[in-house]
Amino acid sequence: MKKSNIATLIVLFALIPATLYFGTILPGRSYYFTGTLIVIELLIPFFMAFEGRKPQARELVTIAVMCALAVAARAAIPIPNFKAIFAVIMISGIAFGAETGFLVGAISAFASNFFYGQGPYTPWQMLGYGVAGLIAGFSFAKKRLPRKPLVMAVFGFISVVLIVGPVLDTSSVFLTLPAISWGTAWPLYISGFSVNVSQGICTFLVLLLLGKPLLEKLDRLKVKYGMMEAHDDGV
């Protein structure tokens, strides 16, 4: 068995239950502490898989370029809460597979926070952005979904509004609420909803207009230089 697979099993069946148990015996309000520990533990297997793979120079640089593009895309469209970062992450996932998509998302969240400030939300952002790349990579692998602009755009909108946005909102729920129940949490999710929709619309537009040409550029690179073949199952 590969090292990273063993790590995944350890994280899922030992580390996370242990953290949950430890969280319940901690005094007071430990949602945020426990939640963040679990988020960090979820990131570990992906990072170990990447280290274990011993990536080639070209693969490394291409991933770095996608991360930097995702962050720099903030500068390309000068409208607040309307950034192409999710679209670029999803395109990387679609082009290079789920694992690379996750990596591009997590690293671009972390790297962009060196410019905009790290905070208690950093691990959650890394997970949320990573998941955006992961699900895009998984859903479009093996032609599960057709790579048509409209399909990608709708998929992007739905995953930002329903999956990535709520992950980020959960970090503020854990951070600011004393007692967590559906009754106390919904105002925060609702206030985050408008931002999520705005980001979702941006992702929709970028994937609709740019998805196809960007994918063609990346696929051409992949074919021409024979790099980063996604595994057969798309994970």
Partner: peptide, 26 residues
């Protein structure tokens, strides 16, 4: 207009960046 222009810029930037990435990698 802002969105459309942003797309064109992003597209041009991607081309240039990917071109450079292969050279850096090699």
């Amino acid at each position: 207009e802002k969105v459309n222009d942003g797309m064109t810029v992003l597209s041009a930037l991607t081309d240039w960046a990917l071109e450079g990435s292969v050279i850096t990698g090699d």
